[in-house]
Amino acid sequence: MFFKINFNHQSLRSLILFIVVFLTFFNLFNQLPRLFYFVHILKTHHVSLIGREFAPLSPYLKGTPTAGYMTCLHSSNPLIDTAIMGPYQQAQFVLSPTILDYFHPLDYRAIIYQCPDEPTSKQIHKRLGPYMIFKSFKGVSLLFRMKGL
C-alpha cells in the first residue's frame, strides 16, 4: 500500500511543511472578505427571528398535542423542498411541544394553513368545512374545524 520512499529526507518534509503553511495563509486571506461581510451584516441588518409569523398562534395551541399542517405549495419531493420544509420546520420549532403533522393534516381538529396567495387560501378554507379562524401574517392561519374529522 505504501511506496518505499524514504521519508527521512529533510527536503521532502520541508516541502510538505511549506505546502501546509502556504495553504494556511491562502485560507486565512480567503476568509478576510467573508469576515468583513459578516461585520457588515451585523451593522446593517436586523437579526431574523425564526418562525415569527407562527409565534402569534402559540397561545391558541397550548395543550394541543398534535395539529395538522397544510400548505398550498406543491412539490414532487416535499421533504427536500426548502420552500415547503422551511416554513413547516419553523412552525414546528416555534409551536413545540405541539407536533405538526404534515403527512396527515386532515386527521386533526386544529390545522395550520400556510399560503401566501389569498384567493387560493379562501378556496381551501371552504373545503375544510365550518371552522374558527385565527389569522397571523404572511398568509399563516390557524383553523379549528367544527366537524368533518
Binding site: L35, I41, V47, Q89, F93
Partner: peptide, 25 residues
C-alpha cells in the same frame, strides 16, 4: 471570529434550530 458568526445566527443554521434546538425545546 466564532462569536461574530454566532451572533448573526442566534438560533444557528437550518438543522441547528429545526433539529437540534427543536429536540431540546
Amino acid at each position: 471570529t466564532a462569536s461574530l458568526m454566532a451572533v448573526i445566527r442566534p438560533w444557528g443554521d437550518w438543522d441547528g434550530w429545526a433539529y437540534w434546538n427543536y429536540h431540546a425545546n
